[in-house]
Write a protein that binds this DNA or RNA. Structure first.
Lengths: 207, 207
DNA sequence: TGGACTATTGGTCACACATTCAATAGCATC
DNA sequence: GATGCTATTGAATGTGTGACCAATAGTCCA
């Protein structure tokens, strides 16, 4: 009585199929973690046989690495607005990180940073994506300095400080404990104000 | 011609054996990561059969959790000196974290924080150890405030800020990239000075 | 329309893992 | 010195993983 499990075989253009695979793998990376990207898991989501994934990614590790990069690239656009005044862009960035909306992104980075321990190529991919984030923030900082919104600080120094604060705050993303303390919630804004020579509280409204 | 693989069976008191197992598991956690704590790996290090590990830890996950706790407890003593002036103790703490000596500890925490995603009991253990660290640092801060070395800041707030900085700096422990930039190396000391109302540079000599 | 190319399948294999359990042997106690 | 308890072994089981490969069937082109 059940519908026959007819194996509907749909043949797609290699580039398209590859995109599909990467896209699903990136979804898994964000939802469940990089170590849950298995041939079977990706194949199931696509309604396809595991062997097909191997066909496109002979080494499963490469799929994981590319999926991480894709997830990082896609998520990046959510917190780096393209335009607006420097302070507003910075406030959006900080507000986004501080809100729960970036939890899956924080988990992804925690995940990847840890897994870098076991995989040299993944480590390289992490550093590459990290570099892209830094480029974005550095550009934002440079804009703010040029416009006079930020003090005339060293861009790289400010960028490094802010990202350490981002990663520090993100460390607790998997903890059930209280990240409700004001010192927690305001840390990133506090550090950003310090790093950019803003008067304390200037970014506080972003929360 | 090879020496016969005589299975030398040495029978030990349960408490002693259990300690041995935990100790080796903690070693593996620090050296190779929590996910490398397998029945076989621990058994091999002890010259014992995997079944014996199961005998003491019917659920392997419990061994991992206890091994993490043990590693965290042992390592804690290395960076929280028992006595000395508050500033000196703080400088030791910061110097230890900043030096490469704490790399395996940073890896352990990154590891555990990530794995907390998949295991509720591990998450609880992480929070427990985290709480113990915070107790230590809070006591140190309270001492410094009482002695007048630190400003009259809120202990919990200062503690939270410093630990976010610790975890943020530790995030890059598996990266091959440059953590050599001064902003990187001084971040923890900078934050500590800010959080404790110390004049900038006061802790810098610790590096 | 027929043939070539290859995306896709279905099945298999080897490996690492935790778990289970009956059999064995060390140690303490009588 | 015999006996009982249990720490320890040896082996088997089941699951999940990546990798491999011959067979199949879409799709495109001559």
């Amino acid at each position: 009585m059940t519908s026959s499990p007819v194996p509907v075989r749909s043949r797609k253009r290699p580039e398209e199929r590859r995109e599909e695979i990467l896209s699903r793998a990136a979804d898994i990376a964000l939802e469940q973690g990089l170590e849950r990207i298995t041939l079977r898991a990706v194949a199931d989501r696509l309604g396809v046989r595991p062997g097909l994934i191997t066909h496109y990614f002979p080494a499963a590790e490469d799929l994981v690495i590319e999926a991480f990069a894709r997830a990082a690239i896609i998520e990046r656009e959510r917190f780096f607005p393209a335009d607006g005044a420097p302070v507003a862009r910075l406030a959006h960035f900080i507000g986004y990180i501080g809100s729960g909306a970036s939890a899956s992104l924080a988990r992804l980075w925690l995940n990847a940073r840890h897994l870098s321990r076991f995989s040299e190529p993944l480590c390289a991919a992490v550093e590459e994506q990290d570099g892209l984030d830094r480029e974005r923030l550095s550009a934002l900082i440079a804009d703010g300095i040029a416009s006079g919104d930020f003090a005339d600080v060293d861009v790289e120094t400010a960028c490094i400080r802010i990202f350490i604060a981002v990663d520090g705050a993100g460390s607790y993303v998997n903890s059930a404990a209280d990240v409700e303390h004001p010192a927690h919630k305001h840390f990133l804004a506090d550090v950003a104000e310090w790093a950019l020579g803003l008067e304390p509280g200037r970014l506080g409204s972003a929360l």
